[in-house]
Design a protein around this nucleic acid. Structure first.
Lengths: 206, 206
DNA sequence: GTCTATATCGGGATAGAC
DNA sequence: GTCTATCCCGATATAGAC
């Protein structure tokens, strides 16, 4: 049994991996079961054996992606560092994380638009709790370390400046570097320092 | 002939309008010619009469969207206002513009990922020239009005904080307002003031 | 220019052998 | 568990009448 189970879950994992790549690149509608099967080194019929349908397979992939992403965010918000240090660490770590899978944010947003109800259900079932970080910002304002600012805007600014330049790379690269991928990559690397300093510069009490 | 031409271009325009809505919401792959025909109040066959294929129709829609978007950006970068004023105006105008068609940025990015070569060609054929704005920022740094900052990072920060919160509304709304659309709308409205002040606060020489 | 009817094909899904 | 062969529907595209 152990051998069977071994092989079973290997194949299943192969399928999930392949499906993830294809779904993320092409979207649910553009993805082809044939392509997933090829990439997994197996046969179309086997896809249906493991996951009953394309919808079910997609759902599985979507859940896997989300459940990997969310703890990653939460973890950092809850660490024990002082605020400015936390902003620096978060930016660095987050830019790196998204650069590893730059297609995922657009994938999620696209699918969220495509089928708001169905996917949103999946999404809601996993909780993120930004409240702790919000409270921390409020405390710093109270202490007078930083200027009065709505914590939500601060958080959204931070996320925006990390995520957007990566997901918009296909456009930005063309706009400012004439398709020079190397240059844009270096630009993103710089942002790991530029963004936190930009933020801290704005909120630090003088 | 005038009557014919009239009707002709009306239908053509109706099709383009309908196609735009459907393509933007569902993406090229998810869009159905039937749905476009229905929304245009005509028949599937007519779509093929005006535009030979789905690909051709998509191309037409994509070009129309881009050629509307790009002058809109350029225009503002070239105005004559002082820098801080320009940042305020740009933010306001740009947030409003994107809120009118919040799905378009994700649509563009998704399609760019789906078919990098084909679409990129279309994209490149229209030029945006950020150089004038870059030079202006450099001059202000020279004058000592603002702190030394790489103009590209400043521009990307600005765009990020305008665009991202709107395209990521489906996620953010859930994260911070528990699906309260009204509250998120008000939040975006606030950003028209918060974002420029956040930026100016960061770059202004003290 | 606009419609109805139909050809064609791609792709998701199932049957059944091994 | 994995494969081959096949079913069947949906969607693009075309033919042809009006």
């Amino acid at each position: 049994m152990s051998e069977m189970a071994e092989k079973n879950s290997n194949t299943e994992q192969n399928i999930l991996e392949a499906a993830k790549v294809v779904f993320v690149a092409k979207g649910m509608d553009g993805a082809r079961m044939q392509e997933i099967a090829d990439k997994a080194g197996i046969n179309k019929a086997l896809l249906h054996y493991y996951f009953r349908s394309k919808d079910k397979l997609f759902e599985a992939v979507f859940v896997e992606i989300l459940s990997k992403l969310i703890p990653d965010i939460s973890e950092l918000l809850l660490s024990e560092l002082p605020l400015f240090e936390k902003i620096r660490k978060f930016t660095q770590h987050y830019i790196d994380t998204i650069r590893e899978n730059p297609l995922i944010p657009v994938f999620i947003l696209h699918e969220l638009n495509r089928e708001p109800e169905g996917i949103a259900r999946t999404f809601k079932s996993m909780g993120i709790q930004p409240q702790i970080f919000i409270d921390e910002i409020k405390r710093e304002i109270g202490k007078g370390t930083i200027v009065p600012i709505d914590p939500l805007h601060l958080i959204v600014n931070l996320l925006s400046m990390c995520i957007f330049p990566i997901v918009a790379q296909p456009i930005m690269q063309h706009l400012i570097f004439e398709e020079n991928g190397e240059a844009y990559s270096a630009f993103l690397e710089q942002r790991k320092k530029e963004v936190p300093e930009f933020i801290i510069n704005s909120i630090r009490k003088k």
